[in-house]
Amino acid sequence: MQPFLFDRADSVTEALRAAPDATVVAGGTNLVDYMRLGVVSPKHLVDINGLSQETAALGRITLDHQGLRLGALVRMAEAEDHPGIRARYPVLADSLALAASRQIRTMASLGGNLLQRTRCEYFREASWPCNKRRPGSGCAALDGLNRQHAVLGTSDACIATYPGDMAQALLVLDAQVELTGPRGVRLVPVAKVHRQPGTTPYLETTLAPDELITALVVPASPWSWRSRYVKVRDRRSYAFALASAAVALDLESGRVKQARIALGGVATVPWRAEAAEAALVGKPLDEGAARVAADAAFAGARTRAHNAFKVPLGQEVLVQALLQAGALQPPPPTSRNGVTHA
């Protein structure tokens, strides 16, 4: 760990002023870890935890007929505990509850969670070559121990897995990210936030350096309650996904009208499986249809020496998530109307 300047921003304007050259820290559960490991060495840290004093919306959960708005500084545990989210967006509540540990979720902010960085072991130890950490140095994972690594969205430069859970839930809920910058506020679909590694794995998002995530915005949907997140990992709790699947289904008389599917633990970015979604449309939701969708989801998978199991595993996880979501019952009308929570 190297010396760095630490200060607190008291307003969004102040944070934005510092942002281009500084690194923003909220919960710090990922950044501080990586600073200690020498993976990143920011010269200037700006703590934005105080911003919710000035701009209350940053720390607030709002749920109404238009949908859900999560301030970027809302902690994962707060969103996980919200009864309206549990009732109307179960995939989101599940993805939060299955992430990390409760202690970490109590610290970690939603904005930071979306941008958490890969846990690739070769990225996390600064002395290995890594195109993401040190552009052009090579990728030690390609021919190394790559059991944890991605099979979708990979390139010859990087196969690091996107580690998060919530992003997959946001994808199937058609959520957007609210970005605030010197040019004002803009909304970007979650699906457009992360970049696949390609030849530039060090460019991880489409965010501009002077922009701040201020909220996650989830639209209301009549079928968002029929959603599920299934996560499989090496132990029962407190581990990153080997494979996970978020699904949301619009069913009409047992047939799929629309489906949203996103995969975690198997891809370099939060992975929307559009081919799998298309494969389900018009079909009755049964094991056979789910399996066809699962095959489609992994049609483009590229495996390495130790991660080939992620294809059958990811498929089984998706089948499970689809069948479980299909079996969900609608929540009682009162909670479907939602509540506004301060």
Binding site: E121, R124, R235, R236, S237, Y238, A239
Partner: peptide, 11 residues
């Protein structure tokens, strides 16, 4: 202890 797994209570 992130990558070297030992059982947690849930296990």
């Amino acid at each position: 202890l992130q990558d070297y797994l030992v059982p947690v209570n849930a296990d």
